Lab assay of single mutants.
Amino acid sequence: MEVRTIKVFTTVDNINLHTQVVDMSMTYGQQFGPTYLDGADVTKIKPHNSHEGKTFYVLPNDDTLRVEAFEYYHTTDPSFLGRYMSALNHTKKWKYPQVNGLTSIKWADNNCYLATALLTLQQIELKFNPPALQDAYYRARAGEAANFCALILAYCNKTVGELGDVRETMSYLFQHANLDSCKRVLNVVCKTCGQQQTTLKGVEAVMYMGTLSYEQFKKGVQIPCTCGKQATKYLVQQESPFVMMSAPPAQYELKHGTFTCASEYTGNYQCGHYKHITSKETLYCIDGALLTKSSEYKGPITDVFYKENSYTTTIK
C-alpha cells in the first residue's frame, strides 16, 4: 500500500517557510505537534488534498525554529505562539472599519479597549522592536488589523473576551517599542525636605499616572512627601515624541487643539466601556464603527496623549 502524501510549508514567522512532505494517514499533531492554519487549530486533523502548498504555523520545537521565533517575536515564552494563534482565530472574524481616516474595530468580545489602543497607536510616533509587531502594525494602518490585535493580546497575556485596560495595554506595548531616546527629568520640591531631581528613561519617561493635564504637570502637581507634608512635583525636561497622561476616570474637559487623542471610560472596574476622542479640525468621538463630532467635550476621561518633541522648564 502506497503512502499518500502532500507537500506543505511549516513556519513560526510566515517569513521562513520549511518544506514538509506530510503523510495523509496521520494527523498534523502526530507529525508536527500543535499546528495552526489561519489561526485555526488543526492539530487533530489529517492532511487533505486542499492543504497542498498551504502554510501551517507550528510551535518552535527545534533550534532553527526557536531562533526564527525569537528573532521575529522577541520572546522565548513557549506558550506565546499558541496564544497568538488562538487569538487570531477570533480577531480574523472582527470587522476593521476605516473611521475618520483611522483603522478602528467594530465592537465584539469586549474589544473596546483594543480599538482605543489601536486608534491611539496610529496617532503617536512609535516604532516597535519585534519585527512581528512592526509588520502587523503597518498592515493594521492599511486596514488589516487582525494579526496586530492578536499579537497585542498575546504580548499582554490576554484572551479574547476578557476586559482590558488601555493604560495597561499601552504599557505592555511600550515595553516592546523603541523608547531608548526618551528621557524625563522631574523635580520634587518640599518646604521641609528641599528639592530632589529624578531622571527617568524609556517607558517611565512617557507615562504618568495622577493627572490628565500635561500643562498642569509642567506647572506642578501636589504629591505627598515622605515627611508627610505636601510637596510639588513638576516637569523639568521632556525628550520624547509623545507623552501619555493618565488618571482614574473623572469628568474632564478636553479643549480642541490642546491634545492629540484621549480615552474615555464609562462604567466601573468590573464592567465598563471605552471610547476614543481625537482632536482634528474639530473633536471626534470614535466608538467602534461609530463616529460623532463636537466642538467641545466633557466626560469621564482616563488617558490623554500629547505630541511632544523637546521641553525644558522655565521655572527657576
Rank of each mutant, 00 (worst) to 15 (best):
E2F: 10
E2N: 12
R4V: 12
R4H: 14
I6R: 07
I6E: 02
K7L: 12
K7A: 15
K7H: 13
T11W: 07
N14W: 09
N14M: 14
I15M: 14
N16G: 10
L17W: 11
H18D: 13
T19A: 15
V21K: 13
V21E: 14
V22C: 14
D23F: 13
D23G: 12
S25K: 14
T27P: 11
Y28W: 13
Y28I: 02
G29C: 09
G29D: 09
Q31W: 10
F32R: 08
P34V: 12
Y36E: 07
D38F: 11
D38R: 11
G39W: 06
A40V: 13
D41P: 11
I45A: 15
P47E: 04
N49A: 13
H51A: 07
H51L: 04
E52P: 08
G53V: 08
K54V: 12
T55M: 09
F56A: 07
Y57F: 15
V58S: 06
P60Q: 10
N61I: 11
N61Y: 14
D63A: 11
L65H: 08
L65R: 09
R66D: 09
V67K: 14
E68N: 08
E68L: 07
A69N: 09
F70V: 10
E71T: 09
Y72M: 11
Y72I: 09
H74R: 13
D77M: 06
D77R: 06
S79G: 13
F80L: 06
G82F: 12
G82M: 14
R83L: 09
Y84D: 06
M85K: 12
M85P: 10
M85T: 07
L88C: 09
N89E: 14
N89H: 11
H90W: 09
K92I: 12
K93E: 13
K95M: 12
Y96M: 07
P97Y: 07
Q98Y: 05
Q98W: 00
Q98S: 07
Q98D: 07
N100I: 11
G101W: 09
G101K: 07
L102C: 03
L102Q: 01
K106F: 07
K106E: 13
N111G: 05
C112Y: 03
Y113T: 03
L114E: 01
T116S: 09
T116Q: 00
A117F: 01
L118D: 01
L119W: 04
L119T: 02
L121Y: 03
L121I: 12
Q122R: 07
Q123H: 06
Q123S: 06
I124G: 09
E125Q: 14
E125T: 09
L126H: 06
L126Y: 00
K127F: 11
K127P: 10
F128A: 02
P130D: 02
P130R: 05
L133K: 00
Q134T: 10
Q134H: 12
Q134K: 10
A136C: 03
Y137E: 00
Y137A: 08
Y138H: 15
R141K: 15
R141M: 12
G143R: 03
E144V: 06
A146I: 07
C149L: 08
C149I: 12
A150T: 03
L151V: 03
L151S: 11
L151P: 05
L151H: 04
I152T: 12
A154G: 05
A154T: 09
A154E: 03
Y155T: 01
N157I: 03
K158G: 04
K158T: 08
T159F: 08
V160K: 06
G161Y: 02
G161S: 03
V166M: 10
T169S: 08
T169V: 09
T169L: 10
M170W: 03
S171G: 11
S171W: 15
S171E: 10
Y172Q: 11
Y172N: 13
L173Q: 03
A177H: 03
L179D: 10
S181C: 12
S181Y: 09
C182F: 05
R184H: 04
V185K: 08
V185S: 05
V185E: 06
L186G: 04
V188C: 10
V189T: 11
V189N: 11
C190H: 00
C190N: 02
C193I: 05
G194N: 02
G194P: 06
Q195V: 15
Q195K: 14
K201N: 11
G202C: 06
V203W: 11
E204K: 14
A205N: 01
A205D: 02
V206L: 04
V206K: 01
Y208G: 03
M209E: 07
M209G: 07
G210I: 09
S213P: 10
Y214I: 12
E215M: 05
Q216R: 09
Q216T: 07
F217M: 07
F217I: 13
F217K: 01
K218C: 04
K219C: 09
K219G: 07
K219S: 10
G220L: 03
V221W: 06
I223F: 14
I223H: 12
P224W: 10
P224T: 15
P224S: 12
T226D: 12
C227G: 02
K229G: 15
Q230H: 07
Q230I: 15
A231S: 05
K233N: 01
K233W: 07
L235Q: 08
Q238T: 03
E239V: 13
E239M: 07
S240V: 04
P241S: 07
P241C: 06
P241L: 02
F242P: 01
V243H: 02
M244I: 00
M245S: 04
P249E: 08
A250P: 00
Q251I: 15
Q251S: 10
E253I: 12
E253R: 10
L254G: 07
K255I: 12
K255D: 00
K255S: 07
K255L: 08
H256I: 15
T258N: 11
T258A: 10
F259M: 02
C261N: 04
A262I: 09
A262M: 01
Y265F: 13
Y265E: 03
G267S: 06
N268I: 00
Y269V: 11
C271E: 10
H273S: 01
H273K: 01
Y274K: 03
Y274N: 00
I277H: 00
S279I: 00
S279W: 01
E281C: 08
L283Q: 01
C285L: 09
I286Y: 04
A289Q: 08
L290M: 12
K293H: 02
S294Q: 14
S295M: 15
S295P: 12
S295F: 10
Y297H: 06
Y297L: 10
K298V: 15
G299S: 05
I301H: 01
I301D: 01
I301G: 00
T302R: 03
D303V: 02
D303C: 01
V304H: 01
K307H: 01
K307Y: 02
E308Y: 00
N309S: 13
T312V: 12
T314W: 15
T314M: 14
I315N: 15
